[in-house]
């Protein structure tokens, strides 16, 4: 790992100031993506701005019928939270399936969503549950946030402060994990918003997480696994790599979507 200077500001305002004044500064959340990347010298920031001491970024509460989750909240905190388990159990279950227990202790929802790894779990929840991403500058709807593989609508120096999730939504996430890394080879989050249904697919898309329109249309008429018989996503825009080819991923999407619908009944 190359050398850097370390900062740990106590407020979002000070963190933003550091990001805008220091050259090549990078935010550090749980470090479970950034530090491995720096160890491999694929990233070499000159300044690290550690957010661990920023209290306002930690924690979970309910406000106006919405679940508000701070960006620095760890996966294990979300998985074990009584509030998340009662208001949005599908989200708690997703968090409980990320990586391994040690990764869940350090990794954060803000880091995962900001990073938008095409195989990460959280982006599918944010998109299917139609959450709002709140930053130090503005609010961004999920549909406008994920712009491509490792790409988001975040601007240089913009900091995610928290997420606002609607509650009381019937939903579930089904993932086919890569047996070695536990990242999603295919993960499908299905969520029922009244008469509307949103289906978000991670792990498979060549441009990262996406909504599966054909599956959404089928489920709107009939929210049952049978409604997905013969329905699917074309393999054209899906990934092929050493773990699975596009055709297999396309197959898995329908299988995982059916499992998610069954679990969401």
């Amino acid at each position: 790992m190359y050398e850097f200077e370390y900062h740990h500001p106590g407020s979002v305002e000070n963190a933003a100031k550091l990001l805008s004044t220091l050259p090549e500064a990078k935010l550090l959340a749980g470090g479970h993506t950034l530090l491995p990347t720096m160890k491999q010298r694929l990233a070499a920031p000159k300044h690290i701005v550690d957010m661990r001491s920023i209290r306002e970024l930690h924690g979970i509460h309910v406000k106006d019928g919405h679940l508000v989750i701070g960006a620095m909240t760890t996966h294990s905190h979300v998985a074990e939270s009584a509030l998340v388990n009662s208001h949005l159990p599908s989200l708690a279950a997703l968090a409980a399936g990320i990586g391994d227990p040690h990764v869940r202790r350090r990794g954060t929802i803000g880091g995962s969503v900001a990073n938008n790894d095409p195989a990460a779990d959280y982006p599918s929840a944010v998109l299917a549950l139609n959450a709002t991403i709140v930053t130090n500058q503005r609010e961004i709807k999920a549909d406008a946030f994920f712009t491509g593989m490792f790409e988001t609508a975040l601007k240089e120096g913009e900091i995610i402060t928290h997420f606002v999730f609607p509650t009381g939504i019937k939903g579930a996430y089904a993932k086919f994990p890569n047996p070695a890394s536990r990242y999603a080879m295919v993960g499908v989050f299905v969520a029922r918003h009244g008469a509307d249904v949103r289906v978000a697919v991670t792990g498979a898309g060549a441009n990262g997480v996406f909504r599966a329109n054909a599956l959404e249309a089928a489920l709107k008429g009939d929210f049952s696994p049978k409604a997905l018989d013969g329905k699917g996503v074309s393999a054209d825009d899906l990934n092929t790599d050493m773990h699975a080819d596009a055709a297999y991923r396309a197959h898995l999407i329908t299988v995982m979507a059916k499992r998610a619908v069954t679990a969401a009944q």
């Binding site: 370390y6 740990h8 550090l28 470090g31 479970h32 530090l35 491995p36 160890k39 491999q40 690290i48 550690d50 661990r52 391994d100 227990p101 040690h102 990764v103 202790r105 350090r106 070695a180 890394s181």
Partner: peptide
Amino acid sequence: CDTSQCGACVVHVNGQAIKSCTTLAIA
């Protein structure tokens, strides 16, 4: 390992098991 996967480095920090190869000492 160099990929944060093997767990040979697990220690407890404030009572919680974490991977010490993926944690800065200064933090």
